[in-house]
Computed example of a mutant assay.
Amino acid sequence: MSWLRTVARLLLGAFLVVAGIAHLVVPSEFLAQVPPVLPAREAIVLVSGLVEIALGGALLFAPARHRARVGIVVAALFVVVFPGNVSQYLTGTDAFGLDSDGARATRLLFQPVLVLWALWACASRPALRRGAVVTSPGRPGSAGPPRHRR
């Protein structure tokens, strides 16, 4: 199963690098996803492209000890950009061959798949569990004793 996770992680990393480069090469296609009410829409496309390149590179090259955290950050990226996909659907803006409400709605349904893909491919669920809840020391699932400020 680990080889399948590795292949999934590498494919997702390559996908993000290619998508990030596309942000820089054909930014007009990505403007469709930036809600019209946001300022500096071109800058948002540029920065999001650079972030995708960086995260794709992290998926491809990060040491194993960092992969779970990288998966969480990539999943968070997919959550953060989701409102842009919703905006594209609501405004009926064509881009990426999404030229109908049905095609744009189908894309919305694929976003949770990307989130799960990132978490699974990087084996991030245990890291999410460890960081999600801090219980008292000595109990199962405990993240250890609370830290005090000095």
Rank of each mutant, 00 (worst) to 15 (best):
M1L: 05
S2M: 07
S2I: 00
L4H: 02
T6S: 14
A14D: 09
V18T: 09
V18P: 15
A19G: 15
L24I: 01
L24A: 09
V25R: 06
V25M: 14
E29K: 00
V34Q: 09
P39E: 06
A40V: 01
A40G: 05
E42T: 01
A43K: 02
V47G: 09
V51W: 03
L55Y: 05
G56I: 02
A58N: 06
L59C: 09
A62H: 07
R65D: 15
R65P: 08
H66P: 02
R67F: 01
A68G: 04
V70W: 07
V70Q: 04
L77E: 13
V79K: 06
V80A: 15
V80S: 11
P83W: 01
G84A: 06
Q88D: 15
T91I: 07
G92H: 05
F96E: 11
F96Q: 08
L98A: 13
D99R: 04
S100F: 10
L108N: 10
L108W: 05
Q111M: 12
P112A: 02
V113S: 14
W117R: 00
W117H: 02
W120P: 01
A121V: 00
A123T: 01
R125A: 14
R125H: 12
R125E: 12
P126L: 10
A127C: 05
V133Y: 11
P137I: 01
P137Q: 10
R139D: 15
G141W: 07
G141R: 09
A143H: 03
R147C: 04
H148M: 07
R149G: 08
R149A: 10
